[in-house]
Design a protein around this nucleic acid. Structure first.
Lengths: 358, 358
DNA sequence: TTCTCCTACGTCAACGTTGACGTAACCGGC
DNA sequence: GCCGGTTACGTCAACGTTGACGTAGGAGAA
C-alpha cells in the first residue's frame, strides 16, 4: 500500500532495492539474459518472489526495440456466432503457442464500427490483426494495411492488394452441391442466400449459377431469393417458393441461419421428407433431425490455423508475396440432400450414410 | 520510413514539430483538455491528420495517474463453446460502451493453464478480469484477487471470499425440472451430469436431489450417472440406463452435450417419444427436433451484462460488499419434458406449446 | 609485469506520454 | 499605472523498462 492506501504493483526498482542490485541486473535476471552471476540471480529471484513482482509488459514493449506487445487483434463479425467463435478459438490456440494473447471484437458487419475497433486495436499497438472484413468499402482496412500493420483477412478476401487471406471453397462447393442435386434428377433447384453485399454470399450464388450451367439447367429467376438476413426472412422466402405453381424440388441454402429458416418452412408444410435440401455450413444436431441435413462443412479449425500461421509469419518479418489460402469444404450426406425429385423413377429415400456434425 | 526503411508510427513529437507547438499542447488537443486556443487546436488537428498520428495507449497508460489500460481480461473455459461465446459477446458489448477492449482466453478448465493466462493478463495490466473459474483449487484466482485486481466470477462462484460472482439458478431450476417431471407422474427420473468437480454440475445434482425429496420420491442410485464428459460418454451412459430391468421413464440431463448424447441413445432405441427428457441449457434447433426438447434456458446475455456491470463498478472504485448475483433460468416446454410415464392414464403426447430457442 | 580479453555488474538515457508547475501576455478594476 | 486573476501556452520530470555503453576486477598470455 502507498500513502493513500492504494496497493501499488512492485516494480523492478523495488526488486532491485531488496536484492541490492541495479534495476538493469533485475531486468537481466527476469529476461534470462546472460551477465548475472548465479548467486545474484538467486537473490533477485528471491526478492521478486517475496515482493510478488510481475513484469510490466506495457512498459517493456514501449522500451524494447522490437516494440512487440505480444497481442493479436481479432475482428470478427459476431463473436457469439458459432462460426466466429470456433475461428477465434483456433486462432487463440495458435497465438498461445507464440505467447501471444488475443484482443477480440465484434464488428457486426458495420464498416463504421469496424473502423472504430480497428482504431482501438491500433492505439494498443497490437502486433497484427486477423479480420473478417465487414461488407461495403474496406477503406479503413486498406489504410491500416498501408501503414504496415500485419493483417490477414479471413472468410472474405480483401478488395485491395498486398494482403493475405484465408477463405473457403465457397464457389466450388456450392457448385458441387448443385451438381449433387442435379445428379439425383432435380431440375428446379432454388437458391436462398444472405445479403449479396457479403462476398461469401455472392460467391456461393456464383457457384450455384456455375452448377446450373454445368448441367445445362436453366436459371429460373423466381427460384432465387437473396438478401435473406436471419431465419425469419428465410422462412418467409421459402414459404413463398413452396407456394409457387411450379415449386422447387430442391433447395440450396447458402448460409446457416437461412438453412434453419428453410427447414422451418418445410416442416410447417410437412415437406421436409419430400423436398431436397443442402445447406452451406454445418451445425450441431444436423444429424439428429429427420431427415439428417446434408451440408457443406467448412473446416473452421483449419481456417483459423492457417490465418494464425500467416499472421505470425508476417509479424516475424515475412516479406514474400501475399498468400490467398483456400480451405476446402466437404459435402456431408445425411439424407436431406439425397431426396430425389417426385418425378424420379425411385421415390424412396436413398440409404444415405448419416454423418454426425463436427 | 526511417533510415532502415521501417515505417515508424508518428508520435506526439512529430505532430508537435509540424504544428510548431510543444508536445504538451498536442497532448491537450488530443485529449480534448482545456488550455489550447482555437487556432492552435486546428493547427494540431491538421498536423495529426496529415501525419496519420494515432495516440499510443501503451505509453499513455504507463504515464497516466489512473493507470487504466482500457482493457478487460476475460478467461472462459472454451471460447468455441456457444455458451462461452454468447457470454463473451455480452461482456464485450458492455465493455465497448465503456471504451474498453477485451483480452480473451480459454482456460480449458485446467488450473495450470488458467494460472498461466492469468499471469499473461496481469503482465498486460488489464483493468479487471471476468473469469469462469477452472475446476479444482482456485489459488491463483485468490492470489490475484488479493493483490487487488478487480475480478468477477461468472457461471461458478468463488471458493474464497471478497469476490463478486454471477451464476444461474442451477439448483432451483434443476429442482423445478424434477418437480415438473414428477408432476406428470414420473417416479423413475434419471440424472445424467458432467464432472462433479464442476460447481454447476454439483449444484444441478443437488437440485435434482431436492426435487426428489420435495415429492417424496426415493433416490435410485443406479439412475444417477455423473462425470459424463462429452456426448459420447453420455450416450453410453444413457444406453446402459435404458437397458436396466426397470429403466427410467424420464431423464434429466444436466448439461448441454449430455443432453445431445442422451438424445442420440433415445433415438437409437426409438424411445425419444416414450421417455421424457429435460435438459439444462438451451441449444439451437431444440424446437425442430421431434419431439421438441424441453430445456432450462439460461439467460446468457443477462449473465454477461451483470458480470460486466459488476466489474466496471469495481474498476470505477466501488468498495461495497461483494455481490453474488443469480440470474434465473426458465423452463421451456417443447414436448420432450411433457411425455407422461407409460403407466399414466393418458399415454398420448400432451399438446405442448412448442417454443423456439433463443 | 603489462597488456588484452572476458565476466559481471552499473550508469544513463530513452521509449511516448502526461502531471506538476512555471510564465508571459492580457484582462478588468481601481 | 499597478494589482490580482485568468488564459494559453511551455518546461521538466517521471511512469517501468531496456539498449548502449562504461568499468572494475580477475584470468590468461606475452
Amino acid at each position: 500500500m502507498d500513502s493513500r492506501g492504494v496497493r501499488r504493483e512492485p516494480t523492478m526498482r523495488d526488486v532491485a532495492a531488496l536484492a541490492k542490485v541495479s534495476t538493469k541486473t533485475v531486468s537481466r535476471v527476469i529476461n534470462d539474459l546472460p551477465g548475472a552471476g548465479p548467486e545474484v540471480v538467486e537473490r533477485v529471484r528471491e526478492a521478486a518472489r517475496t515482493l510478488g513482482y510481475r513484469p510490466n509488459l506495457t512498459a517493456s514493449s514501449l522500451r524494447r526495440s522490437d516494440r512487440r506487445s505480444a497481442t493479436l487483434g481479432v475482428l470478427f463479425e459476431d463473436l457469439s456466432n458459432p462460426f466466429d467463435a470456433a475461428l477465434l478459438r483456433a486462432v487463440e490456440d495458435r497465438a498461445r503457442q507464440h505467447g501471444v494473447l488475443v484482443l477480440a471484437g465484434s464488428s457486426e458487419d458495420d464498416p463504421d464500427l469496424q473502423r472504430e475497433l480497428l482504431m482501438s486495436l491500433a492505439t494498443r499497438r497490437v502486433d497484427g490483426m486477423v479480420v473478417m472484413a465487414a461488407g461495403g468499402h474496406q477503406d479503413a482496412l486498406q489504410q491500416e494495411r498501408e501503414r504496415g500493420t500485419p493483417m490477414v483477412l479471413v472468410d472474405r478476401p480483401p478488395t485491395f492488394g498486398g494482403t493475405d487471406s484465408v477463405t473457403t471453397t465457397n464457389r466450388e462447393s456450392s457448385r458441387e452441391a448443385v451438381l449433387h442435386l442435379a445428379g439425383l434428377g432435380h431440375r428446379r433447384i432454388a437458391f436462398l442466400g444472405d445479403r449479396q453485399t457479403l462476398w461469401t454470399s455472392h460467391e456461393r450464388y456464383t457457384g450455384y449459377l456455375e452448377g446450373l450451367a454445368h448441367t445445362g439447367l436453366t436459371l429460373h429467376g423466381e427460384l432465387v431469393r437473396t438478401d435473406l438476413h436471419g431465419p425469419d426472412a428465410a422462412e418467409l422466402a421459402t414459404a413463398t417458393l413452396l407456394d409457387l405453381d411450379e415449386p422447387p424440388t430442391a433447395l440450396f441454402t447458402a448460409q446457416n441461419l437461412v438453412t434453419v429458416g428453410a427447414m422451418r418452412a418445410l416442416r410447417d408444410r410437412d415437406l421436409h421428407r419430400r423436398v431436397a435440401l443442402i445447406g452451406f455450413d454445418d451445425f450441431p444436431l444436423a444429424d439428429m433431425l429427420e431427415p439428417g441435413v446434408t451440408v457443406l462443412r467448412q473446416d473452421v479449425p483449419a481456417l483459423g490455423r492457417k490465418a494464425a500461421e500467416l499472421i505470425f509469419a508476417r509479424i516475424d518479418g515475412d516479406r514474400s508475396a501475399p498468400t490467398h489460402a483456400v480451405v476446402p469444404a466437404t459435402l456431408i450426406r445425411r439424407g436431406s440432400g439425397e431426396i430425389p425429385p417426385p418425378s424420379g423413377q425411385d421415390g424412396s429415400r436413398p440409404n444415405a450414410l448419416a454423418q454426425r456434425p463436427r
